[in-house]
Design a protein around this nucleic acid. Structure first.
Lengths: 195, 195
DNA sequence: GTCTATATCACGATAGAC
DNA sequence: GTCTATCGTGATATAGAC
């Protein structure tokens, strides 16, 4: 009953995004052709242009969706009273979120330079907003005396770089389960921000 | 007296490497054409093949040279007696080395997937060797009781990710001079590894 | 919505003159 | 060592049939 033609919008649309994300993460935006995406989806190259005006818009859409997810998840975190608990929540959240979607995280880092300047500005602003979320926790902890962090901006960038680095080595089924990774990064983070 | 032909090997060879490094860092290996490199160097595309068998070998040569420089600089560090001093030296060194050559650092991270499997294995082994250099410092500090780091492998990766992250935001002439950046990252690192 | 076919252009790499 | 010219291939994107 397999059809080689006809309408499959409900399947094709999401599948284009899934396969493009996978291929961009594996080989890089510039190295992946529209023909290659089409082959993975199971359509001809021309059919992709029913779903995206061009390749650049497809990349931007994937990155924008990822950053939107991140912002939404961050805003949904519980606002515990104490900065120490808020920081612990953030550390656990950041690691889990990033390990759950390694492909999106990878292209959000690697393919920024393949965005047009306008699209880059949008994503970069979202990244700064996310960083500000952590910085506010650090500043709150400074105010209560819970943390000892002379330069909250630098510490914010240091912590995010340290935590995001987990995506470069973590593999499901590896030496440490997710929970252990979260706990150990939290130990390191806690020691780092307390005198 | 400008010549448009003739031999310029002593100029062209290094210039190809400089321009290729710059262009790969700016736009990515896959997005840069041999014609583009040739234009930046001031020769025709065909002339590049007097210096490299192909584009892949050019990329590998740049990455290999960078990793060789890193290994050589690491081995030249003073072997201070105390792990605390050795770690401080490492932190200052790692930051200075990486900030001195942002383009090479960038492509050493971003273009690994554009290496052939054989070339990738070579670079990856060098990266592991470098990480081992830090891990040995941490283990030495554990042995003397100077450090409190339950998982030296994870702490190694966390520290390197944190320190290398400086390349994503540091700009010469910015808010903090190099020395201040080194000192603040050392403060964070020291707090992180001591209980 | 998908297909086939194609316009237009650029790519990596090579050959042979100088 | 560099040039010009080119081979063979594949890229993005579009047009029009179904």
């Amino acid at each position: 009953m397999a059809r080689t033609q006809g309408s499959h919008a409900e399947i094709t649309g999401p599948k284009i995004r899934t396969e493009a994300l996978r291929l961009f993460a594996e080989s890089g935006y510039a190295a992946v052709s529209m023909r290659e995406i089409a082959r993975a989806v199971g359509v001809q190259a021309g059919a992709l242009y029913n779903y995206t005006p061009d390749k650049q818009a497809l990349l931007f859409s994937l990155l924008k969706g990822h950053m939107d997810d991140l912002a939404e998840a961050l805003s949904a975190l519980p606002r515990a009273a104490a900065p120490m608990e808020r920081l612990q929540t953030f550390v656990h959240f950041h690691i889990a979120f990033h390990l759950e979607r390694p492909q999106a995280v990878f292209i959000a880092y690697m393919e920024l330079r393949n965005l047009t300047p306008e699209n880059f500005a949008v994503i970069e602003a979202q990244r700064r907003d996310y960083e500000t979320g952590l910085e506010e926790i650090l500043r709150a902890g400074m105010a209560t005396g819970a943390f000892s962090v002379p330069d909250s901006k630098l510490a914010t960038l240091a912590i995010i770089a340290m935590l995001t680095g987990v995506t470069t080595w973590y593999r499901p089924g590896g030496r440490l389960p997710l929970k252990a990774v979260q706990d150990r990064y939290w130990d390191l983070t806690r020691q780092m921000v307390t005198a």
